[in-house]
Amino acid sequence: MIKFEKVHKHYGDFHVLNNINLEINKGEVVVIIGPSGSGKSTLLRCINRLETITEGHLEVNGVVVNDKKVNINEFRKNVGMVFQHFNLYPNKTVLENIMLAPVKVLNKSKDEAKKTAMYYLEKVGIPEKANSYPSQLSGGQQQRVAIARGLAMNPEIMLFDEPTSALDPEMIGEVLDVMKALAREGMTMVVVTHEMGFAREVADRIIFIDKGQILEDTDPTEFYNEPKDERARVFLSRILNH
């Protein structure tokens, strides 16, 4: 479903992604970890072309993402994204946040979009906040709204860019619970996170990336028990013993 072939990306002299080869299948939950600055967020953001690649081949959902002729807006309908800082629209209510893209992009009627929005708000557990503004919600609630906003487009892939890194510790659980439920329903998910518990519980694969290169691509248990790569071992001991 997602296929990186010999993908490179440069920021001037900086080689952010170095020969990435990666295939993610439908229904898989893949967690990407790595030190900060390793290129993990960039890798994720290439998938929906928030970042462009400089070299190689990247195919998502049968679409060659880096092809100039691709209708990028059409393509992005099928790929939801959740950000570290939620990026909810502060001037719109929770409901309006979720309804905007279905109405403007999918041309749904307001009523229909509202129904869908309420369905997903129920799903993330905060239907009572439908008419609140983002500033009236806690961080955990805002992130759940952001997930509902992504799901309302009924995407085939969901991308998560450090979804719990900006949250207070007591709110991380509620967001991870929503993500776990989503994983169990068979959503294809690519998650950049440091939440090891989550990775162990629901990830099918863990990708360890450093200095723009994929150093490990294994199943979670194996990764925790004995990472093959030295840098992965050091990284793992750091985040587990902090």
């Binding site: 939801g80 950000f83 800082h85 990026n87 502060p90 905007l100 893209a101 999918l106 952001a146």
Partner: peptide, 26 residues
């Protein structure tokens, strides 16, 4: 904030739609 444009674009809105519905009102 830059994230506003990114959130709007990643949900499939065009540059103009994102400007009109998300960026300019703010």
């Amino acid at each position: 904030p830059k994230g506003q444009m990114e959130a709007a674009r990643s949900s499939g809105l065009t540059y103009t739609q994102a400007m009109v519905h998300v960026i300019l009102p703010q």
